[in-house]
């Protein structure tokens, strides 16, 4: 059985984002990168299935981006993926969701994966489009936002998370694609022996030009912080000072006795 998990490398979301020179995305300077949080759950679920199936299965991890994304691929390999595919694209941020999905579908089409895992969205773009669009392009069944996943005998059974904590139980036959929600599992930390083993695993490099066949359907030329709507007070300084100010506010608002 052939499995694919698609991951994205994103900046640490606690970073201060500065606008780049062309004004359309963040400046890469001074940013620390990590695997998109949702994708960690996708990798973990794919690895668990790979372990369940044993050596009859092969699990590929794919990522699109500049050379730095190899770090995220290596982490997924250390978590238990068998091989990597790096779609080399220094300007992936200029691609729209349709192009990104088309690139993945183009790469995957002749490989005939049985099951594809993605995160439900990325932390930086957050379109929640890529997984479903890949499935549509490949003609696969798909379901999004899984918080529970089971596989047996060619059938995926999962629970989708809905608003208000309700779940819907769904079932589909392979080939299929699932998008993974936070909390689906507990992503493992790669162990040192597995990190060493991962160094020997193959990472196929594919120039994006080989798999990019589509024009974009949407464009964005702007990136800016939100206009602050509230008239909130910002308190900064040393802790003792801040505590005094806070207690003052709590008293003034009658949340604590004066």
């Amino acid at each position: 059985m052939k499995l694919l998990v698609c991951i994205k490398q994103v900046p640490d979301m606690e970073s201060r984002f500065k606008v780049n020179e062309s004004g359309d995305w963040f400046s890469e300077a001074d940013l620390a990168y990590r695997m998109n949080e949702y994708d960690e759950y996708a990798v973990e679920q794919a690895v668990q299935l790979r372990e369940q199936l044993g050596d009859s299965a092969e699990l590929t991890v794919l990522s699109i981006g500049p050379d730095r994304v190899v770090e995220a691929i290596k982490k997924a390999l250390a978590m238990g993926c068998d091989r990597g595919a790096h779609i080399q694209d220094p300007a992936v941020h200029k691609k729209d969701p349709w192009q990104v999905a088309s690139i993945i579908a183009e790469y995957a089409r002749d490989k005939k994966y049985d099951l594809i895992f993605t995160g439900m969205q990325s932390q930086d773009r957050g379109s929640a489009q890529i997984g479903v669009t890949v499935a549509e392009l490949l003609g696969y069944a798909s379901a999004t936002t899984l918080v529970n996943f089971e596989y047996a005998d060619g059938t995926v059974k999962g629970k989708r998370e809905l608003e208000g904590g309700i779940k819907s139980v769904v079932r589909m036959k392979l080939p299929a694609l699932v998008t993974c929600q936070l909390g689906l599992n507990v992503p493992r930390y790669p162990t040192l022996p597995n990190i060493m083993k991962a160094k020997k695993k193959e990472i196929e490099a594919v120039p994006v030009g080989n798999v990019l066949k589509e024009d974009s359907l949407s464009a964005s030329n702007s990136f800016y912080p939100p206009v602050k709507s509230g008239g909130g007070v910002v308190l900064e300084g040393d802790v003792a000072d801040l505590v005094d100010k806070l207690v003052g506010i709590l008293k003034e608002k009658n949340f604590v006795a004066k």
Binding site: P11, M13, S222, P226
Partner: peptide, 8 residues
């Protein structure tokens, strides 16, 4: 975008 810290 970027966990709602930025806009496009």
């Amino acid at each position: 975008c970027c966990n709602a810290k930025m806009r496009r």
